[in-house]
Each structure stands twice: as C-alpha cells, then as structure tokens.
Design a protein around this nucleic acid. Structure first.
Lengths: 402, 402
DNA sequence: AATATTTCCTAAATTTTTTTATTAATTAGG
DNA sequence: CCTAATTAATAAAAAAATTTAGGAAATATT
C-alpha cells in the first residue's frame, strides 16, 4: 500500500471511516454500482460519486466497465484495485506451516502448504517461525513493502484485539503481535485458528449472504466458530466457541483440558484415534492394524482419513459413530442458535459423506423440526485450506477494522 | 403521545432516525449531558444542542437541572419527559394474566398481577384477553389516547417482526398484532415470553452495562434468552434459545415436544413436579404428600416453591438435583458463549440459593476455568415480575425500532 | 429511423453539520 | 472578593452532504 493510500485510511483522516465502510462493502459484495453503494452506505449518489473518484485517483479502486442491465443507461461497476495492497496469511499446523498471499481483491496468488516447521512453544520456535515467513516474503512475487498486514492463526486462547496469545508464544511482556512485527518488519495481527477458518468459509466458501453461521472444526480437537449478524462472535474475553469441552459423557477418558466427559473425548480426531487403537488392540482388523502395531503415535488423522476413503470398514464404523455423537450435540446447537447455516469443517470433514450423513441423521432426530427446518448443514468447501484462506482474509479485514 | 411527537418520529420525517437514536441512548443510559450524547451519537455539540431544543419544544425531552461536577461550568442534564407517552405490558401466565403501565421514562406506574383469565387457544380466548386489556386501560390513571403501544408476551413460537404467533392465537390470515389492534383500538406488538423476561432483566435488573447476557428461564418449561452486543438474538427464523430441548439424557420420559431425553425432562418445573410425584408415590415423606395424594395435577410450581422455602427436605433435595443437572448444561453454554453474565430466572428461581448454589457448583466443576472466570452467575432480581416489566420495556422499545 | 422511456450521472442550489471563536458559568486559591 | 483555571454553551463562518433539475446513455416502441 503506497503511503498516500495508507494515509487516506488512517484514523483521524477526513472521511476515513466512510472510505473503510465502502471497502468493507466491496469486500463482502464484490464490484458494485454507485446506486448500490449509495443505498448500502445510506449516502446520496453525488457523495458516493465524489468518494469513488477520490479513491480511484488514489489507486484504491478501479472502474470495471459497465454492468449489463435490461433497460436504461448502464451503470459503471467499481471495485477494489487488486494491486493496491497485498496480505499474508499464516496457518500453523501440527507438523508444518501453510503460507498464502492474496491481493487486495482477495485472490489467492500464491500458497505454500506444509512448509516443514516443528511448532515449539519457545522464543526459538517463534524465531524460526518468523524466519519461515521472511523466506516466503523474500521469494514471493510481490515486493516486501507492498505487504500491508500478516495474520497468524494460533490454536487456543487468543485475544485479537490486544494482540496477546495465551496458549502459544506467551513470552515477555509485550503483545505477541508487536514481537512478531519486530522480527519480520511487517505489520502482524493474530487470531484463533477456528475463527479464521470460520471467516474463510464465510467470505470464500460458496456461502454468500448468510448472516448467522456456525462452523464446526473437527480436527484433532473440536472447536466452534460463531458468526452472528455477519460478525465473528468472540464473547466477553475472546474465548467463545469452546464446543469441545461441553460436558456430555460419563466416560473415564481424561480430556487434555483436565476434565472428564468432554464431548471432545468422544467426537474429534483424537477420539477416532483412541477408538481405533483400542479396537485394533482388541483384535479387530483394519488396513491400519500394522501401523498401529508399530507406532500408534505415528498414525496421523491424515492416515486415518486415507483409510476411510479406501473404504476400511473399521475406520468407517468409527467415523460414523463419532459423527452421530457429534450430530446429536450439533442438534442442541441448532436449537440454541437457530442458524441459517452449519458448516462441518476441519481435517476430519475430509471424510465427506461418511461423517456428514450420520451428523444429518442425528440432527433430524434430535433437534426441533421447526427450528432445523431453515438450517442448511453442509461440508466445508475450502477443506484443508480453510485456515489459510481465513488467515489471508483476516489479514485484509483487520486493516479496515477499528 | 400527541400527534406532533408521533409525527416527529415517523419514518421519513426529517431527522427521525437521529431522534430515535437519541431516545434509545437515553433509555439505556438515563439522563445525559450534551457532551455525553455528542460522543455517544458521534455528532457535534451544536447539532445535539439543536436537536435537544427541538425535542424539548415537542415535549419529548425535559431539562433536569445541572450535574454536579468538580471543576468548570456545570452541564445541563437532559432526559425523557415521563409524561410524553405511556406503554402497556401484558404477560400471560398459566392461570391468569399480569398487566402493567409504564411512563416514557420506564417507571412502573401501575401493575395488576394475576387477573383471572383462563388462556384458551381460540377466538373466544383472544376476545376475552382483549376484554381484560380494555378494562385495565379504562380504569388506569392515564387516558387511552396517551397509550402508544401494548406489548403482549406469548409462549412458544413468535415472530415479533411479522407479528405472527404460531403457538398461540394463530387464527385467520392477518398477523395477530393486527387482529389485536382492531380489538383493542391500541397499537399492539408481540414477543416471546422468555425474550421479554431477558429484556426486562437487561434494562431493569441491576445488570447495567453488560453487553453479552444469557437469561435462563426455569419455569414449567425451560427457555433461554440471549443478548449479544446489547441486542436480543432471535436466530434466523426467530426461534433461537430452545435450550429445554437440548438432547442430553437417555431417560424414557416423553417431552411435550415429542422427543425423548430433552433437558427439560430432568431440569424444569415439570421435572420437579414429576419427580416429587414419583417419590411421594414411592412412600417418601413431604409436606406435600397429602396434596399429591388428593390431586397431583392441582399442585402448582408455586406450591412447591412454598414447600421449599418452608424447608421441606424432599422438595429441597429434588431442587438441588435439578439445579445440578441444569448447572452442568449451563456450564456448556458458558463455554460456548463466554458471556459476561448469566441470570437464573423464571418461577423456580424463587427458591433462591437452593437452586442457585448447585448451579454454581456444577458450573465450577464442568466449565473451563479460563472461560467462566469472567462470568457472573446471579439470580433474577425482578423474579415474578420479569415478564411483565420486560413486556412494558419492549412495548416502549418497539416504538423506536425499525 | 424517430421518438419515447428508462436509468444513470453531474452541476448548481439548498440544507445540514462541523469548525472555530467567543461568551457563560463554576471552582480554587490568593 | 477578585482572578486564574476549567468546562459548557452559543454564534458565526466554513465545510460537507443532500436535493433538485437537467443532460447523457441505453433500450423499447411506433
């Protein structure tokens, strides 16, 4: 972002708020006409015209030809200038890190999945993460000074407002965002990984125009992202969505949160892994029997998903069992939230209908018909890139939030 | 509300939106200075001054003397003119109806509890309800034409926007609000009873300045009211908050919703009633043994509450059991919503600490410490008047919503 | 092909809002 | 009791936004 553009959006700058509202509208609704903007922002046509002219001058917006209409003069279309700014998304996984670059328009220009990186909760671990980021920036197609913001997804407790992370890299006194900015020379924001996935699906997952959305992140653990009236809901302290630790069962499995009976102990990737290990140990057959025999800890969720998609019966049975238990709890969520859309995402959702159908069955059976009638339940469309794309989208959005 | 006042707030009237925003602020924050309003509404001091002058002229606002400050010139205080308009709240109970009258300032001027009325889901039942309302209006201290709006609480499915009620008085084609307006000659709005209670506690329950609130309505059934960012959350179709039908148990009790295992079958007034009946039938002793022996259906929640407060051991035991089960599920809600405040209300909350303490114990045990640390769990302060006061407050608010 | 109709966009006039400067009201301290 | 310091409210000037009216670009109709 050139200096002139940045200045025109700085807090205090005349008309900055309106300009940001206009950008936010264009992000959400795509290229628009003056009339549409005038109605959406509740401003007169001349005012919008004037603002658009200014922003075209600054290089923030572009004209994109005329719209095809049936009658009358055709209106011009205006939209974000893709080259006005670039943003970076960073998605940290158990055994690697995903990096992505988008332009101002939100198009994913480059992505680099599974860059080797061993997450380690120390200053060294943070330094090597920043090194990975710096290498990506140095080798990407865009100059460093054109990258306006970097958003990093972290698991666990994250306060995006203050920039503090409590579960990861909670080192020293200053917010993690400040430390990372110093290490990379780039502006950095952070957010929770499930929230980022939710935001990615909201903006890029074929789910346009839905305002009340639940996103269920079924990976090693179990998380929930909540979008209410088009905005991410974080709760009072930023910890909303701890779905995995809902007290449901009377089992004796100790959850990593320290309690017993958490939903996560029966409905998550870790639950699938444990159940598989138990049943293979009890003598049941599976194409993963050998792998579990050699090194149970070495079997990843990806391995299990692969086995499911190769139609291993034991794996499918366990996925169905877990899906039904999860669906029953999602039924409760639907009763509570009466959402427009429920998206099933996370690693385990890559088993597709094997997971989705039992969930749908359980929802039909256990939630009130009048409530779930208006709720669509679908699979994530971004699958394993939801977190990365969400990180990129957040990197952009955060630049225009106050 | 005189014609001039009404006209100045009508949609389309110049500055109506700003005037409504100002009224909304004064409702929520009480009497304010010009400076405070200027900051809250993001308008300059001269603009606010001009608006206030106009609204004082119209009789909407009053000046209320000067505020005590330490230094400098003291600012004038402005607030709603209590006599500018009056509103009626109607709260329908199982065996009667509660009516209340508030002034523009929200002060409860008159209330009439438990007016004999047998709710009947028919045109006759609706007519006799309107007759009760008309009698109250004719005998109250305010002239009929000064009453601007009447809000009626109904249980079950209600769409406040469209004015249709689906569980009660779903007669004919036009919205219930229109029918009732014709029958009473007054402007009528409707809402769900739990939402009204929630709104009452939000505005009048010593819980000011909290923005994310859950209200648990433990009466014969079990409902949940959700306030997010200071606004009532209704979900996509207006049915959010069906907490009572969360699938939790494996029992064989058929809920009135038709399903088995609903939370409501183990944690609600009806559950307490059933458990009591069962254990008395099994030979356990209680001061209600005789009453249950004669006419089980005749024993009301009020009777049971009375027995608890007279320290009947069996009743207390059952309340504690129900409280713990409810608390465990509320723990899940806290994990999900990370709210600032949880209010325990509804008829059963009148057992006070007998219900609250087991709930708190269960929350401590079953929700994540880092999440519930910032959540206060309190009893309803409006108790049996929450619904009525909420109805009155909604009657007023609805006049200034679009 | 000419005219009517529809819709978009622009320019000047009008209205509204904000800035800036000034006056008013109040307290603290000498 | 007077003056300095502080904050509120107002008035006039400046800036910004909207309304109104008219021209421009496109399609439909005669």
């Amino acid at each position: 972002m050139t200096n002139a553009i940045f200045k025109s959006l700085e807090q205090g700058s005349k008309g900055a708020l309106l300009r940001k509202r206009m950008i936010a509208h264009l992000i959400l609704h795509g290229n628009s006409t003056i009339m549409e903007l005038s109605k959406a922002l509740d401003l007169s046509v001349p005012t919008v015209t004037k603002m658009i002219d200014e922003m075209c001058q600054l290089g923030i917006l572009n004209e994109f030809g005329k719209m095809e209409t049936n009658e009358g003069r055709h209106p011009h279309l205006y939209g974000l200038n893709p080259e006005a700014a670039y943003f970076l998304g960073v998605d940290i996984k158990n055994r690697g890190v995903n990096l992505g670059l988008i332009n101002f328009n939100g198009d994913l220009l480059e992505d680099h999945m599974n860059i080797p990186y061993q997450p380690e909760n120390s200053l060294e671990g943070l330094k090597s993460l920043c090194q990975v980021i710096n290498e990506f920036v140095d080798n990407c197609q865009v100059e460093r000074n054109k990258i306006v913001n970097v958003n990093v997804n972290l698991s666990g407790r994250v306060n995006p407002e203050s920039g503090y992370s409590y579960s990861w890299f909670n080192l020293g006194e200053q917010p993690l965002t400040v430390t990372m900015s110093q290490m990379t020379g780039l502006h950095v924001t952070i957010d929770n990984d499930t929230r980022a996935m939710t935001y990615g699906e909201y903006l890029r997952g074929n789910n346009q125009a839905k305002r009340d959305i639940l996103f269920v992140n079924v990976s090693w653990g179990l998380g929930l992202g909540i979008i209410i009236d088009g905005k991410i809901y974080t709760g009072k302290s930023g910890f909303a969505g701890e779905f995995g630790h809902t007290p449901v069962f009377d089992n004796e499995v100790i959850c990593h949160c320290g309690k017993k009976g958490c939903l996560e102990t029966e409905a998550s990737g870790s639950a699938v892994h444990r159940k598989l290990a138990e049943r293979i140990a009890a003598g049941e057959n599976s194409i993963l029997a050998e792998a579990f025999g050699n090194d149970p800890q070495g079997v990843t969720i990806e391995t299990i998903i692969d086995a499911v998609n190769r139609e291993d019966m034991l794996c499918i049975e366990i996925i169905e069992e877990v899906g039904y238990k999860l669906g029953k709890q999602i039924a409760g969520l639907i009763n509570l939230f009466n959402p427009e859309l429920v998206i099933i995402g996370g690693l385990l959702s890559m088993t597709g209908d094997y997971l989705l159908q039992p969930i749908r069955t359980a929802i039909r059976k256990h939630s009130l018909q009048m409530v779930h009638r208006d709720t669509h339940v679908v699979l994530s469309t971004l699958t394993n890139k939801a977190g990365l794309i969400g990180a990129c989208m957040l990197a952009r959005s955060r630049t225009f939030d106050d």
